[in-house]
Every structure is written in C-alpha cells, then in structure tokens.
Design a protein around this nucleic acid. Structure first.
Lengths: 191, 191
DNA sequence: GACAGTAACGGACTGCAGTCCGGTTCCGCA
DNA sequence: TGCGGAACCGGACTGCAGTCCGTTACTGTC
C-alpha cells in the first residue's frame, strides 16, 4: 500500500475529500468497535459514513488500508518515541536495552489493537511487508542489531515473532507474558 | 501426480466420493501448475473436475484445504523421515543436529511448493495454526529444544521464521541461502 | 460572479468464496 | 435382485471485495 495513504496528503486536499475521509474514519472506528473488525463489511462502512463505495476504496485501497489508516496515529506515536523519545526506547541507551524496550512497546501496541493490526497485515497477501511501518520497524531493529551475523534477517525473524497473526494464535496457548518473555529472550540470544 | 499417495479417509469412502476426490485433486494440480495457485478460482477447479461446487467445498472446506490436500503426500514423506528415517533428520542424532536437519528439510519442502504452502496457510485467518501438520512440526521442534527456557515458544518462533508468507516476502530481498543460514543460526542461538 | 479544468464522487457491475437443500446415487442387507 | 436409508451430489443463491466510468462539485482564474 502506498505510504501516502497513511499520512495526511501534504499539498492540499479538497474540502469534500477531507470531509469524506474524516467521516469514513469515524464511521469505521465506531462500527469496528461495536461489531468487531471481521464482522463489518466495506459496504457497511461506506453506508454509515454516507459515502459511495468507490470513494472508500479510492482513498484507502482495501480493507487493510482502512485498518492501517485507523492505526496510523497510534503507530506514529511509537515511531516518534523510538526516534526522539527518552531512553531506553529512544536514543541514548545501549542497543540491547533499546531492543528490549522496543519489543515491549511494540507488544503493548499490538495487544491493544490486535484485531485491527491483524486486519492490516493479512487482508491482502504480503500486505504486512509492504506497509511503510514494517520497513521502519525492520530498519530500527537491524540497526540496533549491528554487529550480529545477519542483522537484516534477524530483524525480520524477530518481527515474525510479533506478527499479529502469530501472536493471536499463540495468545490462548501461552498467554501474553510468556510471549513477551520469549521474544525478548530470542532477541538477546540472537545478538 | 501419483494420487494413490494422497490420504484416504479411514472410515470407508463411497465409490462416487472417491472418484470425485481424485478428479478434483487431479484437476486442481493441473490448473494450479498451468496458471498459478492465485489465479485459479474454485469454480474453475469444480468445472475442470466435472464436479459441482458444493462437492468441492464439502470435501475440502475451502481453498486452503484444497491446497493442503495437494501438499499432503509430500508432507507425510517429511513427517515419516522425521519419525523413522535415518539420522540426522530421523532419530539417533544429537538434538542440535536434528534441528538443523529438520529446518533444512523443511525449507527444501517449502521452497519447492511455496505458492501452495502460502495458500494453505493464509487463505483463511489462522489456518496455518489449525493444520495438523503445524502441530506436528511444533511438537517435534519443542521436544528437540527441551532444556532451553521455553521450548514451546521457541518452537513457535522458529516456525514463524519459516512461514510461507514470511519466506516469500524475504526471498527477493535476502535469497534462499541467507534465509536458510539465518534460521539455523537463530535455532542454535535459541537453544 | 461566471467559467473551465480537474479532482473527487458514487452506485451499478463483476467475479469469487462459501452455503443450502431438493434430488440422486450408492451400499448393506435380506 | 430389490429395497430402504444414509451419504453424497450439484448448481442456484447470498454476501462481499474490489472496479469502472458517467456525473458532480470544488478551486483557482479572469
């Protein structure tokens, strides 16, 4: 999905477009909260927003894009904290502590928005890896893992261990805390 | 494809049912090979097999189930080798060598059938974790990892690193050999 | 304020996954 | 060989994602 969809278009957005975008996000948030992400169809969202289906899809691409747009604000908070926030999540702490802090923060975010993240990652094949945010998390981890044998692959592997689909499947079996501990242990071992 | 190698349901199958099952698998294998798994609809499979859509879905559940059925023979060969084959894949070798051998063998299998495995894992949400084969691989790895802090979680994490979706996304970026080396390095580190 | 150009709109349309149920075929048994 | 019932068949049907394109309405210009 094009990154522009996740951000407010910088140049100039037509007034009707802005109105519709806001209406869609509001309606989607409400419907998803009321009925669950899975149970809501794009037709319902369009109808509830008072908008045509074409508008909905042109703006958000697909259901994954709509989910990503709803997560955008929350995700940017995390990205901001990683880039410029206080250590150990932000810069200034040793790399291993920053990795732990990132995985903790990411899991907080994930567990709080699991259905939405899952939708944004799985609605279309390979969606997860095309989202700009994935590239960001990957780059962040790979940089922190510099010095280990293959930081790029290790970063991907750690992100695979916190994929929405994966965590959702493990949650009933292991519980959140075992997942959290396991991922951090893996990160430490891989370094 | 030698259809005789495919699983036959134990509690007696009616002759017409067996005929249709074989026809569907044969048609699906041909169409998937010709046009790619993604590009073939279930209607097409049903039509090519000379069978109604209801029959197709009753027998295989969904597109993921059909893909899994096509992979079944191949998968059972690997399971057999793991259970009763020669070491290091089979019993008799030290656990760490068996883990390496398993990951190598699994990646061979995965890379050879990537589109089909991907379909079987992603067609419906959580499908991967419900397949019997996943439980088998997980159990195998967890047993080999006995002694490490959380073998269950580590086994899940290693399997996440060889998920069809994941490997498909990393393949263009890293290539098969880096993925192979990375996964084995991770397994060694996690132990 | 009117106008032209263009971005955005919206709902009819397509194709697909998956369901349902009236009808058909097969199998065990006498 | 004929019979009864269970298992299976198949295609019409539903609901959804995503597309297309004729229509609408916003914006910058005169």
């Amino acid at each position: 999905m094009p990154l522009e969809l996740l951000r407010t278009p910088p140049p100039k957005e037509r007034a009707d477009a802005a109105r519709n975008r806001a209406a869609v996000l509001e309606a989607a948030a409400r419907l998803f909260a009321e009925q669950g992400v899975e149970a809501v169809s794009m037709d319902q969202v369009a109808a509830a927003a008072g908008v045509g289906k074409g508008t909905l899809f042109r703006r958000f691409g697909d259901k994954a894009g709509l989910a990503a747009a709803l997560l955008d604000a929350r995700e940017r908070v995390l990205q901001e904290a990683v880039l410029h926030g206080p250590p150990p999540l932000g810069p200034g702490a040793p790399a291993d502590l920053r990795v732990d802090a990132f995985l903790d923060a990411y899991l907080d975010y994930l567990l709080e928005h699991l259905p939405l993240v899952r939708m944004s990652e799985t609605a279309s094949p390979g969606a997860r890896y095309r989202i700009g945010a994935y590239r960001f998390w990957h780059r962040h981890l790979a940089i922190l893992l510099a010095g280990s044998p293959d930081p790029d692959h290790t970063a991907h592997a750690l992100l695979a261990a916190v994929a929405g689909e994966h965590v959702a499947a493990l949650l009933p079996e292991l519980g959140a805390e075992r997942i959290r501990a396991g991922v951090k242990r893996l990160a430490r071992a891989a370094r």
